[in-house]
C-alpha cells in the first residue's frame, strides 16, 4: 500500500470515529442522562400549558430519534450549537469561538513547550547514557511522571499568588483572564499582556509534563544508539552531533510523532484543570461550569469540540507518521 492508500485509510477511520463520537455524545446527554433537560429551564410550578410551550420552544417535544438527533447532527456539523440552557439563552457559537481560541492558544503553546523542553533533554540523556546528566534527567522524568499536574499548579498558585499576596500585598501573577482589565491598547501591549497571563498555566504544564517526554525520548535514543547503523554512521566519519540528530533521532522520529498523539489526551485533561485553576477562560473551565449547572447544550458542544480536536490531532500525527516513515504498512505502525 502506498502513501495515498495509507492516507485515505487514516482519513476514513477518522471520519468513522467522528461519527461514533457524535452518536456517543448524543446518547450520553440525551439518553443516559438521568436528568430531564428541562429541569433547568422549566419551573415545576408552571402550568402545563406554559411547560408545553417551553418544551416546544426548545424543540424538546419532538421525538428523540430521528428529529432531535438529525437536528443535533446538523447543528454540530455546521458549528451551530444553539443556545445556552439557562436564563440568558445566549447563543453558544460566538462564545465557543472565543473560548476555543483561548484553549487552543494554551494547548498549542504548552504542547510545543513540552516538546521543545522534553525531547532535547531526552536526546541529551540518551546520548550520555549512564552519566550524571542522564541520571538527573531520568530522575526528573520519573518525578514529573508521578506528580499530578494540578499539584504543581497548586504549589505555583500557593507561592506566587497566595503567599506573595500576604507578603507583598498583591499577588505576583494575574488572578484570571487572558488579558487584564481594562484591556491594554495597541497590539504589542496586548500581546505582552496575554503572554503575562499565559505564562503561569503554560510554565506549570511544561514543568509537570516534560519529564515523561524526556524519559520516553531517552529510552528510544538509547535503543537507537545501540543499532548497527549508528556504528556505520560513526565509521563513515559522520560527526557526533550529526550521528545524534541526523541518524539516531531521525530514526526515532516516527515513534516520537506517535507519542505526540498519545500524549494529547493527557494534555487535554491537564488543560481542563489548568483553565479552572488559573481562571483561563477556555472551553475546559466552561465545561466544568456547564456540568455543574446542567447546561447540557454547552457541555455537549465542548465535548464535541474536544473530540474533534483529538481526532484531528490523531489524524495529523498519523499522516505525519506516514510521511516520516517510509516503512508504513497497515497494522505495522506503533
Amino acid at each position: 500500500m502506498g502513501f495515498r492508500g495509507y492516507f485515505l485509510n487514516r482519513i476514513a477511520i477518522a471520519v468513522a470515529v467522528l461519527f461514533i463520537v457524535l452518536v456517543l455524545n448524543f446518547l450520553i446527554f440525551r439518553v443516559f442522562s438521568p436528568y430531564d433537560p428541562t429541569d433547568m429551564i422549566i419551573d415545576p410550578d408552571f402550568e402545563q400549558a406554559t411547560k408545553d410551550r417551553l418544551r416546544a420552544e426548545w424543540g424538546l417535544d419532538r421525538p428523540l430519534f430521528p428529529d432531535q438527533f438529525v437536528l443535533y447532527l446538523k447543528n454540530l456539523l455546521t458549528w451551530n450549537y444553539g443556545r445556552q440552557f439557562d436564563q440568558s439563552k445566549s447563543l453558544i457559537a460566538p462564545q465557543m469561538a472565543w473560548r476555543l481560541r483561548n484553549t487552543l492558544l494554551l494547548l498549542g503553546t504548552a504542547t510545543i513547550g513540552v516538546i521543545l523542553v522534553g525531547i532535547p533533554l531526552g536526546i541529551l540523556a540518551g546520548s550520555r547514557r549512564g552519566s550524571k546528566t542522564d541520571i538527573t534527567i531520568i530522575g526528573a522524568g520519573l518525578f514529573t511522571w508521578g506528580v499530578p499536574t494540578f499539584f504543581v499548579q497548586l504549589i505555583w498558585l500557593f507561592v506566587f499568588s497566595a503567599t506573595w499576596n500576604s507578603v507583598f500585598g498583591a499577588p505576583l501573577i494575574p488572578r484570571s483572564g487572558v488579558v487584564g482589565l481594562p484591556p491594554p491598547e495597541g497590539l504589542l501591549e496586548t500581546l505582552k499582556d496575554v503572554a503575562w497571563h499565559a505564562i503561569s498555566p503554560i510554565c506549570t504544564l511544561i514543568i509537570a509534563g516534560f519529564g515523561s517526554w524526556a524519559l520516553y525520548t531517552r529510552n528510544m535514543m538509547v535503543d537507537a544508539l545501540t543499532e548497527d547503523y549508528i556504528q556505520t554512521a560513526r565509521a563513515k566519519g559522520v560527526k557526533g552531533r550529526d550521528v545524534l540528530f541526523r541518524h539516531a533521532f531521525r530514526s526515532i522520529l516516527p515513534p516520537v510523532a506517535t507519542m505526540v498523539a498519545l500524549a494529547i489526551p493527557g494534555i487535554v485533561t491537564g488543560a481542563i484543570i489548568t483553565e479552572s485553576l488559573f481562571g483561563w477562560p477556555g472551553i475546559g473551565a466552561w465545561y466544568i461550569n456547564a456540568l455543574m449547572n446542567r447546561n447540557h447544550p454547552v457541555a455537549q458542544a465542548v465535548l464535541y469540540n474536544y473530540a474533534v480536536l483529538m481526532i484531528g490531532a490523531n489524524l495529523v500525527t498519523d499522516l505525519l507518521y506516514g510521511f516520516l516513515d517510509p516503512r508504513i504498512r497497515v497494522g505495522q505502525r506503533r
Binding site: 477511520i13 463520537v21 456517543l24 450520553i28 438521568p34 489526551p265 485533561t269 480536536l309 483529538m310
Partner: peptide, 23 residues
Amino acid sequence: MRGVDVLLCLPVLPILLILSSYW
C-alpha cells in the same frame, strides 16, 4: 482494534466528569 482507535480518540477525562456527575 477499531474500538481501540475510537477509545484513543475520546477525551477521557471530560467523559468521566460527565458520567460521574450523572450517577
